[in-house]
Design a protein around this nucleic acid. Structure first.
Lengths: 114, 114
DNA sequence: TCCGTATATACCTGTCAAGGAATATAAACA
DNA sequence: TGTTTATATTCCTTGACAGGTATATACGGA
């Protein structure tokens, strides 16, 4: 698993992370809430832990998993440069002008929309 | 390609998106800046377009690609519930208490760290 | 000590996506 | 019209990953 983006590409893993927002959970609790086989849950948790999305606590035979936010912050940080496109702390017009600008001067007449 | 998350799981596609933040680009410009073969660029652009991340304009033989922010907003929205873990608009202590709470009462003594 | 519960791991298999090479399409230009 | 430039598409191969099944490990309790 190369990057945090690949980790959250898997829908079941995203579901697990969402579950853990409210509170820490044991493997069995996750298993029941998401209706998935236990080995599947364990394997996804393994991936999530290796990538730093979760950490676990031992409670007798159970393992309690909880969220670790750092990798998610990384994704949040990657999104930052794109936010100007929907959160105009700069002016919307300026943005539009950027699009119409170098380094791609259109040759002859203006290009028609696809 | 099932979801927007799978689309951005691919590093080259993320690179393309990042390139398009500053301005629209032709396939050839992307190709040169990212040093990847033209068919690879075209194929990734196809995926990005099908998923709504970009749109294209025809300019003679060239196609100018530009960002469309909607799918990225979707990712941003998915992140929202997790932000409380690093952007405490609620109290940090409250969050910590949530973790220690139901629906997972620990049995006997406290669990030791992983 | 034996058993049941909870979780992790190993192995196998099918699927799918990414890259490479070749080719198709389309427009500009001589 | 033939050629060059720009981009898209097709075909093929390969590797990675997810799921299923079976099994291993570890702990608590009778």
């Amino acid at each position: 698993m190369e990057s945090v983006f690949e980790v959250i590409a898997e829908p079941n893993r995203r579901a697990i992370l969402s579950l853990l927002v409210s509170a820490q959970q044991s493997v069995g609790e996750i298993e029941r809430q998401l209706r998935m086989p236990q080995p599947t849950v364990s394997k996804h948790l393994r991936v999530l832990r290796d990538a730093g999305f979760v950490e676990s606590t031992v409670d007798a035979q159970r393992r309690l998993y909880r969220l670790k936010p750092e990798p998610l912050q990384e994704i949040d940080a990657w999104l930052a440069p794109f936010r100007r496109f929907w959160a105009p702390h700069l002016d919307a017009l300026e943005r539009h002008l950027d699009q119409m600008e170098e380094p791609t001067p259109e040759k002859g007449r203006a290009g028609s929309r696809k």
